[in-house]
Design a protein around this nucleic acid. Structure first.
Length: 700
RNA sequence: GCGCGCUUAGCUCAGCGGUAGAGCAACUCGUUUACACCGAGUGGGCCGGGGGUUCAACUCCCUCAGCGCGCACCA
């Protein structure tokens, strides 16, 4: 053995050996394995390079899979990649921008084709990256979210939701991004606190307060609380003629409980097309709704002289005119409120009334809540349970339509004459069943999370696939705590709905990987760590164990190069322990006959094994890894080997043999336990001592 | 506003009813069957403040403070 472990040389060779052995595929594992253990990999987005978060999930999931495999289970880790709809389109649009092009210069088909090629390229890089991180996943079962068999399952769920009346097409308020030209669900929105002026405007006999004067052109309803004594003289339905921004109008009085008497003057006018609260009031009272701002964020002709202006440009001019007409009573310049922005570009989102497909989430959430509350699904760490339940209990209907090209096309037809939407999987409906009108294809695509939400059963070939029957429900869903609502809750809801069973028994959530200073990694800060650079420098094993030790589930981890270097030293240490033992192998050693079972050191190792097993089964990987590290270095190397040195040099032949037998036993035992954490170096050493064997499938 | 966390050695964090732990960093000494990517050792902590439960609290409960995050239609 070389004095120093050369990870670069060893890792590639060993991964190839594993892959060629076929043992990543549970069907090809030796022995009679009945108990399945399944993890579906959270598919990385096929739109960029691997980042530290990927290294984190690979490490944790690979630990569980390798452990299960060594325990004799049918261990399946199913890999995949995600087309990542909107996310990818945003990445691609940025690329277009840099090239001086725009998505709006391309037809949907052209754009789709370009992004397809782009993702296929990234997909290859992603797969190579996962391999170099040591992922022992079954490549023969790899899936892509746009594979035809996946889309087929997604479509079937869509149809079933429609048949079960859990899907509707509705004119509802959605959040609209004027830059990206698409609507969102409630999750793609980032609330930002801002301080803006609040304008008090004279509206006939009333004074109303608003932060958005530019939406007020069409306001013809003035609303107050039914119990407000200040407005007791006004009755619902009263008509009042008044002078407004662009001339005289007739306002109608409405009374509604939604009004907060303490805010402003207790009276407000409503803009149902551009505000969710106002929309709800309008729905309750059957009021007219009128669009004031278009999809590009510009004022419509209703704004008169201001038509065609962007909001930012129009607002001060409108305020100026209001002041000139004597309608501006006062301005409170320090009104603190929250505006909703696009989580990608920060553009202030404009609520718009749009025809979109919505899923009625309440019934789906109810069964998810039950599965979580009765403990069928367990969260690690535990506190995510409460977070999840809180979200599910307050869930709102889910807009799954996106006005972007990159995604799974929504299999539906739309009727322009009556507004009906009809689910049509096989392009067989050509006339509106409601009014007989002409139909056109719905141009929209699904929210990417609608398909990802079906990932656990879709990848396993629901409903008839053999894999589905064997491996579902899966054992663990391991992913980033960040995407708990986007993904985890949706998988639970859709999994239970489609299959009647939970999609996974355990949810393990890891935290963010931060830079050495504890800051979030981002491209703009330039502090993004490329895991593959680190593995090249220090070895994959060093990176992996650095990501595990001291990292409790759910909490973020500051990753410094110092840390990884420290664990690289551990790889070297392990290598040298092996080298020392190998150098002391007696000639004609007959190890099989040595009786060492009663040695204290052997018992100690067995006790350690019990602890490590318990920790891994309890998802306490940080404790397992730390104890192993400590044992190997400070007990095995520092104490046991040091104590045996004398016997190895001066002992009788029998003593030498016994010492060697014991050290070899302890070494191989340690390697086994370390293998899930540091697969490469342990495999390399193991095969030196046991030529022809593969540690990956040795018995735990 | 509601909810969820965090606060332990210089730094990053484990531990969570029974005499304070690791890695990194610092300091001293050391080349002896592997390993200087090493070994032997040292220093360093009112375990955020206050109160309570207990024979016993860093650990459980309450409260305050600071920090972080999530959710939320007050115009």
């Amino acid at each position: 053995m070389e004095p120093r472990y050369d990870h670069a040389e060893v890792e590639k060779k060993i991964y190839e050996q594993w892959e060629q052995s076929g043992y990543f595929n549970p069907d090809k594992l030796p022995g009679d394995r009945t108990e399945p253990f399944t993890i579906i990999m959270p598919p990385p987005n096929a739109n960029g390079a691997l980042h530290a978060g990927h290294a984190m999930f690979v490490t944790i999931e690979d630990i569980m899979i390798r452990f299960a495999r060594m325990q004799g289970k049918k261990a399946l880790w199913l890999p995949g990649t995600d087309h990542a709809g909107f996310e990818t389109q945003v990445v691609y649009e940025r690329k277009l921008e840099k090239e001086g092009r725009s998505r709006f210069d391309l037809t949907r088909e052209e754009l789709y084709k370009e992004i397809w090629d782009f993702t296929q390229e990234h997909k290859k890089n992603t797969e190579a990256g996962l391999r170099s991180l040591g992922a022992s996943c079954d490549w023969s079962r790899e899936k892509f979210t746009l594979d035809p068999e996946i889309i087929k399952i997604v479509y079937a769920t869509f149809k079933r939701l429609s048949d079960d009346k859990l899907l509707y097409r509705g004119k509802r308020i959605v959040s609209w991004c004027s830059k990206h030209q698409t609507s969102f669900s409630d999750l793609e929105i980032e609330d930002v606190e801002r301080v803006d002026p609040l304008y008090y405007l004279q509206y006939g006999p009333f004074v109303i307060a608003t932060a958005r004067p530019e939406t007020k052109f069409g306001d013809k309803y003035v609303v107050m609380h039914p119990d407000d004594p200040r407005y007791a003289q006004y009755k619902e339905g009263d008509k009042i003629d008044l002078e407004w921004i662009n001339g005289p109008i007739t306002a109608t009085v409405i009374k509604d409980d939604a009004i907060d008497m303490a805010f402003g003057t207790g009276a407000m006018t409503i803009t149902p097309w551009h505000d969710a609260t106002d929309f709800a009031i309008a729905e309750r009272h059957g009021l007219e709704k009128e669009q004031v701002i278009d999809e590009r964020g510009k004022l419509l002709p209703i704004a008169g002289e201001f038509a065609g202006m962007k909001i930012a440009e129009a607002r001060p001019k409108i305020v100026e005119k209001l002041a000139a007409k004597g309608l501006l009573i006062k301005t409170d310049e320090h009104y603190k409120h929250v505006v909703r922005t696009c989580y990608k570009c920060g553009t202030i989102l404009e609520p718009q009334i749009k025809d979109q497909w919505f899923i009625k989430t309440k019934p789906l959430a109810a069964s998810a809540i039950q599965a979580i509350e009765d403990g069928s699904i367990v969260f690690i760490p535990e506190h995510y349970k409460k977070i999840c339940l809180h979200w599910l209990e307050n869930i709102i209907d889910w807009n799954i339509s996106r006005q972007i090209a990159w995604g799974i096309p929504i299999p539906a037809k739309l009727c322009d004459s009556c507004g009906e939407g009809i689910v049509d999987l096989d392009d067989s409906i050509h006339k509106c069943p409601k009014c007989g009108g002409a139909l056109r294809k719905d141009p929209d695509t699904f929210d990417t999370w609608f398909s990802s939400g079906q990932w656990p059963f879709a990848t396993l070939g629901y409903p008839d696939g053999k894999d589905f029957k064997t491996y579902y429900p899966t054992d663990v869903m391991e992913t980033a705590g960040e995407i708990i609502f986007f993904w985890v809750t949706r998988m639970i809801m859709l999994g239970l709905y489609a299959t009647g069973e939970i999609p996974f028994k355990n949810v393990y959530l890891h935290g963010l990987v931060l830079d050495a200073k504890g800051q979030k990694m981002s491209k703009s800060k330039g502090n993004v760590i490329n895991p593959l650079e680190l593995t090249e420098k220090y070895g994959t094993d060093a990176l992996r164990i650095a990501l595990v030790i001291g990292n409790t589930p759910g909490t973020s981890l500051a990753l410094s190069e110092d840390r990884i270097r420290g664990y690289r030293n551990f790889s070297t240490k392990l290598w040298n322990i092996a080298r020392f033992i190998q150098m002391n192998k007696p000639e004609n050693f007959a190890g099989a006959n040595m009786d060492i079972a009663n040695r204290e050191e052997v018992k100690e190792l067995q006790a350690l094994k019990t602890e490590i097993t318990k920790h891994i089964e309890g998802f306490e990987f940080h404790l397992a890894a730390e104890k192993l590290y400590h044992y190997v270095w400070h007990t095995f190397a520092d104490k046991i080997i040091e104590a045996e040195k004398k016997k190895l040099s001066d002992g009788t032949k029998a003593e030498k043999s016994e010492s060697y037998a014991m050290l070899e036993y302890l070494l191989l035992g340690s390697l086994k336990m370390l293998h899930p954490f540091m697969p490469f170096v342990t495999e390399a050493i193991y095969q030196i001592f046991r030529p022809g064997k593969i540690l990956m499938i040795e018995k735990w």
